[in-house]
Write a protein that binds this DNA or RNA. Structure first.
Lengths: 165, 165
DNA sequence: CACCAATCGTTAGGACTCAAACAATCTAAT
DNA sequence: ATTAGATTGTTTGAGTCCTAACGATTGGTG
């Protein structure tokens, strides 16, 4: 379902195009596989878990963050999710239209907007997250227990080095 | 710069919300770190390598695929990049407006559109890809050589199991 | 030869992404 | 007390993402 060409075919072609330049193919493979994996997992979870509940990936992630940390401010949602405040504003508008979340202005600081789940939002998450986690288990079942730990560690290292610049 | 809460804080909170349900936190950590890493790496590369050339992530990826496999059909670009044909149409329109790619109708099959790089497109990629790969090296330098191999392998396994359903 | 089904790229509409600019609000310094 | 600066959430505009529907083209079959 992915590309027609394999990674090694691609590497050979890059070598042809950049004859004399030294290319770090091992690093290229890590980064390339990182995005392939993230995309594949995202698509898989959207189809198997989220689509039956008519929920988008971002919608679910925002719902999840609110579920865990409610009441939570918009800026904090953005920080947890890893996107901009502007994006969160749009997603919240969608979720609010579906009666899954509620926006309320803070009394101590009127600039802040506090977000909480509605009753049906809570019900949805209590049902949805175990399904989601079940599928996460299925996905990682291709890895040995030690691989699961080491992969998580490697990914965390990559995240850390990448963020501090 | 990411979330305020750590992963273990999140796990504790999930335990509180789902008291009696068994949750696979190790798998959750892998999936969570997968998306954090992909996002962080993407943002990092956009800022350090792509932004100076006024290029978006998707724009670069499409340019890269065309550079390697030109002349290439629209449907093949979509397959390599991992998105829909419709998305590619939009991105190509942007890239064509910047005079980086050329669209040309196939003579043997008039339904097909063949895409190639312009001179300036080729010049850009010959300059840009080594920079990009250099940064990939920097990112993976937090990992030992054996970790680089095993991480790439684990990610490939995840991609494969996830795609076949 | 004429039709039918498959396939190509494009368009339409809705959701999400960002950066930049904005009004409202709070805080700190004078 | 008042002004200046910082911060919050929102809006705007351009770009990207998807699915679904569309016209154009092709190939096979009756």
């Amino acid at each position: 379902m992915a590309g027609i060409h394999t990674l090694s075919e691609t590497e050979r072609q890059v070598s042809v195009l950049l004859k004399n330049l030294p290319i770090d193919f091992d690093s290229m493979a890590v980064v390339s596989n990182l995005f392939r994996a993230a995309n594949a997992v995202k698509n898989h979870l959207e189809r198997t878990v989220l689509a039956p509940h008519d929920l988008s990936w971002t919608g679910f992630v925002v719902l999840w963050v609110v579920w865990i940390w409610q009441p939570i401010e918009t800026r904090q949602i953005a920080a947890e999710v890893g996107t901009s405040k502007a994006s969160i504003t749009g997603v919240l508008k969608t979720l609010e239209a579906r009666k899954l979340v509620i926006r309320k202005q803070s009394k101590t600081d009127q600039r802040l907007v506090l977000v909480t789940l509605t009753k049906s939002g809570e019900k949805l998450m209590k049902e949805l997250f175990p399904e989601f986690n079940q599928e996460e288990s299925t996905i990682t079942s291709v890895l040995a227990k030690s691989e699961i730990k080491s992969t998580a560690t490697s990914l965390r290292k990559i995240t850390e080095i990448t963020q501090q610049s």
